[in-house]
Amino acid sequence: MIRRRRPTAALVAGLVLASALAACGKAAQVEETGGHVPPDSMSVGVLLPGSTNRWEQYDRPLLERRIGELCPACTVMSASAQQDVAIQHRQIDSMITQGVRVIILGAVDSKSLRSSVEKAREAGIAVIAYDRLVEGPISGYVSFDGAQVGRLQGEALLRALGDRAGDAQIVMMNGDPTDPNSGWFKEGALSVLQDRVRIGKAYDTAEWRPLNAHINMAGAIASLGADRIDGVYSANDGLASGIISALKAAKITPLPPVTGQDAELAGIQRIVAGEQYMTVYKPFRLEADAAAEMAVALIRGEPPPGATTGAADGTGTSGVPTVLLTPISVTVGNIRDTVVKDGLYTIDQICTPKYAAACEKAGLTG
């Protein structure tokens, strides 16, 4: 179901992107396509994959709010694909029929959606690839630096292993191979981990599903031995939950260090409890703001603010207006100074009765 909303302005603090303003060529502007968008269209489509809780809890409302602040006359239509590429194809068709001017697209499958991106372009609609790249003639790309995400995860895992790293054996639990970000994260992690630790098993985890991570981890434990796993590279917090449940089921104590990403509340709580070593925090507001600003600029025929037009590192987006943001590593020692300080969670949200003792030990009280 597609939600239609005309956002109203809200009093929120503005966040300034660190990258410099660069003039973008007309190839990125909607008017160049000569398609079928009504000339007075002020509609933005927001199509999100729906594979984790973050999309509905953070990205969609943040995108809608920022678009409304920048363009009170704009209408936003949003929908979740529920991790189904066929649904997302139909949603793009619906957006084309309804004459939106820009689509902000968090792709379920970057390759399979090429035909729909091409169809949108032919209709005169600009497509902004959001959070993950999508194949086809896109007009912009907004994400976090995936290579840096992987490097932060790999560096944290090495720190956790300490002097044992040279003799350590780890398991790599990568994300969905259809998501280009997954390979980007893995490449960054391997740039740090390769030749520093032994990778006993490595998996690609279909659809980023925690259950699949649990199954993969159970297989790694059976193959390598419960006492031969010194650490686990987990591409995100959802996978980390499945990994940790498998480690617990095998009665492995103490738990080896496990990485993560997305700063999910459950992931932060596992860090407090000592079950997960770290996560990567990607301030969703920065990403949503950048995409909203790019969408409104494209509607107005202006250069997208904060974008560069060179080849984004490792993404193949040469010439496409691109904003890559900087992720942040979070461990138990800087929870207060990151996700709490930024207002992502309150101490009360993190420190429920179940985690009260662990929070006190971590200095997360009051």
Rank of each mutant, 00 (worst) to 15 (best):
A273Q: 06
R270T: 10
L286P: 02
G316Y: 03
D262I: 05
Y281S: 09
I268P: 09
V296K: 07
T317A: 06
E293C: 12
P303Q: 05
A263T: 07
V258E: 01
V330I: 14
F284S: 11
L324D: 01
A297I: 09
L286V: 04
A307T: 09
A263S: 13
T309D: 09
P303W: 01
Q276K: 03
G314S: 07
T259H: 04
A295K: 00
Y281P: 09
G306W: 00
Q276A: 12
T331K: 13
P303V: 02
E275D: 14
G310T: 08
E264P: 11
A297Y: 07
P305C: 05
L298T: 08
A290M: 08
K282R: 12
M278S: 15
T308I: 10
R300G: 12
T309E: 06
R300D: 14
E287D: 04
A311M: 13
A288R: 03
G267D: 06
D289M: 07
R336Y: 09
G274D: 03
Y277E: 13
G319L: 07
G306A: 02
A266H: 11
I335H: 11
V258N: 05
D337E: 12
V330A: 11
A273H: 00
G306H: 01
V330E: 04
S318T: 14
R300L: 14
P321T: 01
T317N: 10
Y277C: 10
A295Q: 00
V296F: 08
A266I: 08
A311L: 10
G316V: 01
A290Y: 01
R285I: 12
M294H: 12
A297Q: 08
L265Q: 03
A288Y: 04
V272I: 15
P257A: 00
G301P: 02
D313R: 14
T309Q: 08
P304F: 05
A263H: 07
Y277L: 12
A290L: 07
L286R: 06
K282E: 05
R336C: 13
E302F: 02
A263I: 11
A263E: 07
I299H: 00
I335F: 08
T326N: 15
T309N: 10
A273P: 06
G274Q: 02
I328V: 15
A263K: 03
I271L: 03
E264G: 12
E275F: 11
K282F: 05
A297M: 14
Y277H: 13
T322N: 10
E287C: 05
A295P: 03
E302P: 06
V280S: 00
T315Y: 08
V296Q: 03
I271F: 01
V258K: 02
T279H: 04
D262V: 04
R300I: 11
D262M: 08
V323E: 02
L325R: 00
M294P: 06
E302T: 09
P305L: 02
R300Q: 15
K282S: 07
T326G: 14
T308N: 12
P303M: 04
V332T: 15
V280C: 04
A297G: 11
P283I: 01
P327S: 03
E275S: 14
D313W: 11
M278P: 08
